[in-house]
């Protein structure tokens, strides 16, 4: 097991607000920090701004107000993107007709590390093999990505995220549209990445029951940060809320 320095900040979100049109705030004054080795579930209702927040944390969207720091650096000055893995929302983000084998997809995770003109190296292929074995997809390496089941595709995208040897992985609703058994296997895999490899995981999900069983911290988002707590604390608060109602 890798040694994890839990005091190290992986990501700091400070006073983030975001609006698409300058009028309605999709997110308002969100502040929290995720530490090395944390396993965080970002939960909240549909339209609560979870994906928007994730995209801001990844630098894909610029916040209207506030600041994001990755590994202590301002996000617009951050250069070490290989430290960050990303598994996008499955259903919407890729073309199943795309002519790429599983192995080709995972190799893409190595591309940014190699400069212009360079080919992939023996090391890239070795790391690709290891990543595919890690997610139990090595036997499928020659298959086209579009020919796999949803659960298998998602494991391949995990492999693509871990192949750059990141310290943190962001996952956006990774279990949407995959069957129960594949979901269970998927959470086992995430537990392994968190426990054995000491990776920091940030997981968006609407499956609150499931996520509270798995993660170390719950960030409950509904346009603002409603709470940032342990799963037990979160469940207790929700219960009290319901009793009051």
């Amino acid at each position: 097991m890798q040694r994890v320095d839990h005091s190290k900040n992986i990501i700091e979100v400070q006073g983030i607000s975001f609006s698409y049109d300058g009028k309605v705030n999709v997110l308002k004054s969100i502040t929290f920090a995720i530490h090395s080795g944390d396993y965080v579930g970002l939960i909240g209702p549909n339209g609560a701004g979870k994906t928007t927040l994730l995209k801001i944390m990844l630098g894909l969207l610029t916040p209207t107000k506030g600041e994001v720091r990755l590994f202590g650096q301002k996000i617009n000055e951050f250069k070490d993107w290989y430290k960050v893995g990303y598994v996008p929302q499955k259903a919407t983000h890729f073309d199943t007709g795309f002519p790429a084998t599983v192995e080709e997809v995972v190799l893409m995770g190595r591309y940014a590390k190699r400069g212009l003109f360079s080919r992939t190296t023996e090391e890239d292929r070795k790391l690709t093999r290891e990543a595919l074995k890690q997610v139990d997809m090595w036997e499928y390496r020659r298959r086209l990505i579009g020919d796999l089941s949803g659960g298998q595709q998602q494991r391949v995208f995990i492999a693509r995220a871990i192949v750059s040897q990141p310290e943190v992985i962001f996952l956006d609703e990774p279990t949407t549209g995959i069957d129960r058994q594949a979901q269970d296997d998927f959470y086992v895999l995430l537990r392994k990445l968190s426990g054995e490899l000491g990776l920091t995981l940030v997981l968006i999900s609407h499956d609150i029951k499931r996520v509270t069983d798995e993660v170390m911290h719950i960030a409950w988002i509904d346009r603002t940060l409603e709470s940032y707590s342990s799963p037990e604390e979160y469940l207790r608060m929700r219960k009290e809320e319901q009793t009051v109602l």
Partner: peptide
């Protein structure tokens, strides 16, 4: 290749 397959993931990877 990466941008064609998955523009967002490519951007996050630093491309």
């Amino acid at each position: 290749v990466y941008v064609t397959f998955d523009e967002e993931a490519a951007q996050v990877s630093g491309i």
